[in-house]
Amino acid sequence: MILLELKNIKKYFPIKRKSWGGQGAFVKAVDQVSLSIYPGENVSLVGESGCGKTTLARIMIKLIQQDSGSIKLEGQEVANLKGSKFRKFRKDIQMVFQDPFNSLDPRFTVFHILKEAMTLEKVRYRHFRDQEQRIKELLAAVDLPVNILNRYPHEFSGGERQRIAIARALVLNPKLLILDEAVSSLDVLIQDQILKLLQELQDKFQLTYLFISHNLKVVRRVSHKIAVMYKGKIVEMAATQEIFQNPLHPYTKELLSAAIEYKSVRRSEDINIHPNAQLVEKEKGHFVLDV
């Protein structure tokens, strides 16, 4: 069963107000994107900044409403959910943000951060002690000492904060965890620690990750499948090894040559994308946007 299935997601942002009778100008942030995420199969969205990957992630957790397209969580359409069903959906997909220094409310202690996340859970804890027990389990899971409950975010380092943010995201036992550049603001050693931690957590809690990143080295380590985004479209999608060994789309080649040593011709002009271009399966499981 597909965990999360996106079909023809479209989101245009207006950049100019519509003049009378005229057509307004738009940024095509996400343009007819389809993507399927299977349980346990980590997917990475890569691409330059501004290519629409963060917008796509925000549409997945419904921070932004898409213009059109369908989102299915375990086969159920969630695009227009409301009320208690919506909260159930919310619980299953959580997100960790890039900047650990600003993504935690400075007025909340670690305990409050985790406790507030719990208020969305259906199961109310009968006893305060049970709740505290769960919080301590989570802190242990992300390798943080349990005596930090009464401390505030500003008392921690970047790596520690990101662990707190991960613990917070795990409170509700999500099925899919979206990591929006979650390690890119950390230094390499801490990055390594967090990535190891994420791998441990995946085995422990049966998580599926969606990485959003521009760092191909990180992506190579953790993902099974890579989708390359460019100008709001997925231009290539294949298994991680396949992308690295056999990139087919000119943009993917360029991205690889910039990130790692990969022989490629520098492009002289912008890569044009035909408005009606479709993803075509060139080889088994390897999709490329038809140029």
Binding site: L63, F97, S103, L104, E116, L120
Partner: peptide, 26 residues
């Protein structure tokens, strides 16, 4: 406009809690 407001919304907190618990206190 802060990131922790985005976090609060992303975890599915009701909007009034986002406004009064997180934004107002800051």
């Amino acid at each position: 406009g802060q990131k922790y407001i985005l976090t609060a919304r992303a975890k599915g907190l009701p909007e009034n809690k986002v406004v009064y618990h997180h934004a107002l206190r800051n």
